[in-house]
Design a protein around this nucleic acid. Structure first.
Length: 727
DNA sequence: AGCACGCCGACT
DNA sequence: GTCGGCGTGCTC
């Protein structure tokens, strides 16, 4: 008898292991297949996935059960089992979590192909069927062999019962065909452009050897053309390619470009697809019909057979890190995949992450630079406006006088304006309106958060102090809590320029399926003068008439309680500035700030990535932040606040003791999370910082699971290595 | 997670 | 005696 090692579809923590089932004589079972088994005392019928098949009987198993049935499809092969194991350990996830990445969503709920019954002509009318109505149907079907279904004939005015008669007597036949639900919209051909010398050099370099490359190209330097050429060459060799983009960059414009170049042998894979569409795209890849995938992070797991190229555009974007289990980072996973395949991973950005650039400096990955704009347009001129001066001169509005003046000018000249305000979800900080002083934690270099009892608290280490009545730096009384959103901007713009056509683009206004495209087209067709938006407008948009970009509050991202606040600010300003002056007319950017001397802002102003990077990396090193350390972020949640606090304190003690066995690993907290309660669940956090290698993280995970066993029903734990955000 | 087993108190 | 309430432990 053969045996199968099976991961069962049960989310429970203690079920995360491999169970052995017997394979009955009448079934053929192989690795990667989905099977039905009975499980537990109740013999509940559940699905499982085959991880291995052996002839050796399992040891120490008293009651061996047999597999009941097998599904036809195979979701992974033996090689990928090792990959599943690696991801499971690296991201502290379960088998099931990882397997779910590899199978299209909707599979577990039994998704099926959508089939359609296509009609075929068989023979000419004869005998008592030789009548006009039959002959016309037959000739119509003959002319459209295999293209029509009954509904089409009905629409064309034929009688469906006559069609049925012809089918019944063998004049017509039907064949059911799988119908793919992918997007078959029309697209214009996007011709290959001649690459300039820099671009050619980049292509040559990348294709010369397998490995990871960091493609650092200023905005407008034509990185996309480099990808397109690499993909073309890859296809020529019969290999597959994946291009990952942040969700917000999957603009119609970008999709047009890829489809226009490579036709329909491409899949666009993102979160807006329905389960059915996702299922179909997955099968198109699986069956080898598709050689290229463009998509968000999850596209990385499409079942390509010969994947040799992965491009991660805007590699600095945080969306490549999953917030859900497994909390994987697409950059790391892609690298693992390409190492195994001897393929190439291209990380591309105008503003590379500090982490990636640091790796390039250490020669772990190869740096390739594109220094010139591909088109003849020049980089926009950048001006910083000190908002403290505005306040002193009695201007309390969101707009500086300079910006207002420039806006007026553009409106008169019928040029377009983009106003950017990075009001992302949660953010509160306290700052002095007169001198720009921001209350920060002395230990952590992050902004302190204002609490209702009028205290300031550091949510990283738990330090607390009272909010003084006057600014510690300049004694002014103008201490204010900040918070302005795009809606308020829209209102102000309408007040200042009642005749201007204004559009606001953020998560609230683009919720509906086509709203993004509609707004995009309106703006493109000059049916709008001023576009106000969040991150969403910071990248990918290419409008030739935009000559002014206003960054309303550069400080918003700068004062986030996050060690990457400066990095994010530099990236955002640079990206959004890149929207200006893409056509013939030169662009101008106004950056409004209360801390105009901050190096993140001044470096962005002078288009100086290297300068920014140098300063930032020094600070990271001084504070032992990544990339010089790793962070391990643990969040404990419970509805029972007192139970949570009691347990978190003891966990804190146990952890602190455990960490003494490592050098250079410190524990911050326990402290309440920045968002201290979500949906009636109280949240406390612990942050471990230091040289946390994967094994140490696993050990810590196991220790915590052990410690939390008695209260596992009441307290949930989330663990994230190298988290994106710590809220 | 879900189910069975088993130990204990309350009640016919 | 016996019904059921929940704590404990196992699931190939």
């Amino acid at each position: 008898m053969s045996y199968a090692g099976i991961v069962v579809n049960n989310e429970a923590l203690s079920m995360d292991r491999i169970f052995t089932y017997g394979i009955p004589q009448n079934l053929t079972v192989s690795v990667g297949q989905r099977v039905k088994v009975s499980f537990g005392q109740g013999n509940k019928r559940i699905d499982g996935f085959v991880m291995r098949v052996t002839d050796e009987a399992p040891e120490g198993v008293s009651r061996l059960k047999e597999i009941q049935s097998v599904y036809p499809e195979t979701y992974f092969d033996e090689e990928q089992v090792a990959f599943i194991e690696v991801l499971r350990e690296k991201y502290l996830a379960s088998y099931l979590d990882v397997i779910k990445l590899l199978i299209p969503r909707g599979i577990l709920s039994g998704m099926k192909y959508k089939t359609s019954e296509k009609l075929y002509f068989v023979k000419e009318a004869e005998g008592r069927y030789d009548k006009d109505q039959y002959r016309s149907i037959l000739s119509y079907v003959k002319a459209n062999q295999g293209k029509l279904i009954k509904a089409d004939l009905s629409k064309a005015g034929f009688s469906v019962s006559s069609v049925n008669t012809l089918l019944k007597h063998g004049f017509l036949s039907v064949m059911s065909e799988n119908e793919y639900r992918y997007n078959i919209e029309e697209y214009e051909e996007y011709k290959a452009r001649n690459l300039n010398e820099e671009q050619l050099h980049a292509v040559e370099k990348i294709k010369s050897a397998p490995g990871t490359y960091l493609l650092h190209g200023i905005t407008g330097s034509g990185k996309t053309e480099v990808f397109l050429e690499l993909i073309r060459q890859n296809i020529e060799k019969g290999y597959d390619s994946i291009v990952l983009l942040p969700e917000i960059s999957l603009t119609p414009q970008m999709i047009e470009r890829f489809k226009g170049r490579f036709g329909k042998d491409i899949t666009i894979f993102h979160s807006r697809l329905s389960d059915g569409e996702r299922y179909d795209e997955w099968h198109r890849v699986k069956s080898g019909k598709v050689k290229i995938a463009i998509g968000a992070r999850s596209a990385l797991f499409l079942p390509f057979q010969n994947l040799r190229l992965v491009v991660i555009d805007e590699e600095h974007e945080s969306t490549y890190k999953s917030e859900m289990n497994p909390k994987y980072n697409a950059r790391e996973v892609a690298e693992l995949m390409m190492e195994k395949q001897d393929g190439q991973l291209v990380l591309a950005s105008a503003t590379p992450s500090v982490e990636s650039f640091h790796r390039a400096e250490k020669k772990e990955i190869e740096l390739i630079t594109l220094q010139n704009r591909a088109t003849r347009s020049v980089l926009p001129s950048m001006e910083i406006v000190d908002m403290r001066d505005e306040l002193m001169s009695g201007n309390r509005s969101i707009f500086s006088r300079t910006l207002l003046e420039k806006m007026k000018e553009r409106l008169e000249r019928k040029e377009q304006i983009i106003l950017f305000l990075n009001r992302r979800g949660f953010s509160t900080f306290v700052s002095c309106r007169s001198c720009g002083y921001v209350f920060k934690c002395e230990n952590c270099d992050i902004s302190m958060t204002h609490h209702r009892d009028n205290s300031l608290m550091c949510h990283q280490c738990g330090a607390r102090k009272y909010l003084p009545k006057t600014c510690p730096a300049c004694q002014s009384k103008y201490i204010k809590q900040f918070g302005t959103g795009t809606e308020k901007v829209e209102e102000s713009v309408r007040k200042f320029f009642p005749d201007a056509r204004v559009m606001r683009m953020d998560r609230d206004t683009t919720r509906q399926k086509n709203s993004y495209e509609l707004m995009y087209n309106d703006f493109k067709n000059n049916e709008c003068d001023i576009l106000i938006g969040t991150q969403m407008i910071s990248k990918g948009l290419d409008f030739k008439d935009v000559t002014l970009v206003g960054v309303l509050a550069a400080d918003l991202s700068l004062n986030m309680p996050d060690y990457r606040a400066s990095e994010k600010t530099f990236q955002l300003i640079t990206q959004v500035a890149g929207r200006a002056g893409r056509g013939d007319k030169p662009g101008e950017v106004i950056i409004q700030s209360y801390s105009p001397d901050n190096f993140a802002i001044t470096s962005a102003q002078s288009h100086d990535y290297k300068g920014f990077y140098r300063r930032e990396v020094e600070m990271r090193q001084a504070l032992n932040n990544p990339p010089f350390s790793r962070l391990f972020y643990l969040v404990f949640t419970s509805e029972k606040e007192d139970l949570l606090i009691k347990n978190i304190q003891s966990i804190g003690g146990v952890l602190r003791k455990h960490l003494t066995k490592y050098d250079n690993m410190i524990l911050l907290g326990p402290s309440p999370c920045i968002i201290s309660k979500i949906k009636n669940n109280y949240r406390w956090q612990v942050l471990i910082k230091g040289e946390i290698h994967d094994e140490a993280a696993l050990e810590i995970r196991n220790l915590i699971q052990q410690e939390m066993k008695p209260v596992y029903k009441d307290i949930k734990v989330s663990m994230d290595l190298n988290p994106n955000s710590m809220m």
